[in-house]
Design a binder for these strands. Structure first.
Lengths: 259, 259
DNA sequence: GCACTCTGACGAACACTGTTCGTGCTCTAC
DNA sequence: GTAGAGCACGAACAGTGTTCGTCAGAGTGC
């Protein structure tokens, strides 16, 4: 700060107001912007991401970002693709195709779960970014190698993506609210589920007899169990489609008995 | 406008500036606000709904709304519940439980589809509003009457709600973009799907061989087919859980052969 | 070494957003 | 007839995404 080597000792002429003491031009780039954005999303969620906030993180003004990024929307897409880049996919092993699909879905859920509510970006866009394609390619290849009819496999890729994003987004809501309330995760969840349980129990039993009668079942399941139940629903359905089409059904009957 | 009956013919004294020509106080109410909000959502989508916009629709200022509604969030919840009120549910007929579940889900999808992207409100909230409870009660009753184990039925209610909202929200994206582009629905969809097809076809075949090889399958399905495929996946899975638990499986094998 | 263009960083501004505060009108209850 | 509560409303605050015009500095051609 202050002296610049090239200017020797000559002080800036005072009548020129020194322009602004020439702050060292920060060097921006798409990657810098994206990773700064991802940092914000991870720490505070998608709603907290604003162009000003990203710019501030990089020590500049919001207008500077628009030279590298079209939009806030494009920025979010780029961040989303960055996250999807963390999802690892296996080489197809035809004998384990159903299990492999299950593994890819679990892997995706793990990654989304590690990045706050970023999954909602995936819900709002038709994914055509590189990593989205990579994962779709992988899933399609696994299923087709396993003998699933291509039409079924294509539909399945779409529905699985929707399910993963929707569930991850739903799950992130609890996560963000917990973070906002300063409590520990376990304590928070217990409190929330307790409140929901109390709420259901307090319902008028004449209008909602079945709900009231099964409160415990309604409240018992945690995030993980609900997610896996829904996933296995779809996988059982898929197995039945595959079996109908003459493909060999998965060896051990149902995908439930895994893990 | 102008004369008020009680004031006879006496004009307002000019030195008092007439306060503001005393505009006839509009009478607000929660219901008025909610229905105005729903009108905006229907016409322009959730993003277009702002407190100012609602106030304008009612001929007043934004601050006036806060006497009847806590929040924008609460307003959206109220609008969402209003929409859910349109969903009709049947009386349980144990012999047709799977078909009835399917019908309720289709009915919900129909209603959401008629109200722009309102479904995204359902994605972002744990639904505890009256109509959400009504529908959950109905689904639970149908399944339990059909012999589905309560635990499975409880999980199913949750997963179906998630699926319906997620799909309706995804579908609404196309809808809103079409509306924004001034074209006819059919023309718009054809254009979009054409572009996506072209995009897939133009992909490097060495990195995405499976995608490129099955472009036609990937692009062929429309909204409806994708939705019903996913739904039937889940229902087949559900049927298999129900069968495992000793309940009578649905008569005609799979839910696919309906309609 | 000089003059040139062109990229891109940046300050300021615009039109919005949700929400709050204070004012004062109008209707109700006594 | 008057006190009081409820509530409609204007103005303001702090924030948003985005655009415009300016202008420093790097790179290029001579």
């Amino acid at each position: 700060m202050g002296y610049h080597p090239g200017m020797a000792d000559i002080p800036a002429p005072p009548w020129r107001k020194a322009r602004k003491s020439s702050p060292p031009r920060t060097v921006l780039s798409r990657d810098l912007i994206v990773s700064a954005g991802l940092r914000i999303v991870d720490a505070e969620g998608v709603d907290a991401l604003s162009m000003r906030r990203v710019a501030q993180e990089l020590g500049t003004g919001p207008a500077s970002l628009y030279a590298h990024v079209e939009n806030k929307e494009e920025l979010l897409d780029l961040i989303y693709d960055e996250v999807m880049g963390e999802i690892r996919v296996p080489e197809p092993e035809p004998g384990r195709w159903l299990e492999q699909i299950r593994e890819v879905v679990l892997e995706a859920t793990r990654v989304f779960g590690a990045h706050a509510d970023i999954a909602r970006v995936g819900l709002a866009n038709i994914p055509t970014t590189p990593n989205a394609l990579r994962i779709a390619e992988s899933q399609l290849r696994i299923m087709i190698a396993g003998g699933v009819p291509p039409k079924i496999a294509s539909l399945m890729v779409d529905r699985l993506a929707l399910y993963v994003c929707a569930d991850a987004f739903e799950g992130s809501l609890y996560y963000l609210r917990q973070r906002g309330s300063g409590k520990e995760l376990e304590e928070f969840l217990e409190e929330v589920f307790g409140q929901i349980g109390d709420f259901y129990r307090a319902l008028p039993a004449d209008r909602f007899p079945t709900l009231v009668a099964h409160v415990d079942d309604l409240v018992a399941a945690d995030d993980r169990e609900r997610f896996e139940f829904g996933l296995d629903l779809m996988l059982r359905g898929l197995a039945s489609y595959a079996a109908e089409a003459g493909s060999a059904p998965p060896v051990s009957g149902s995908p439930t008995s895994k893990d």
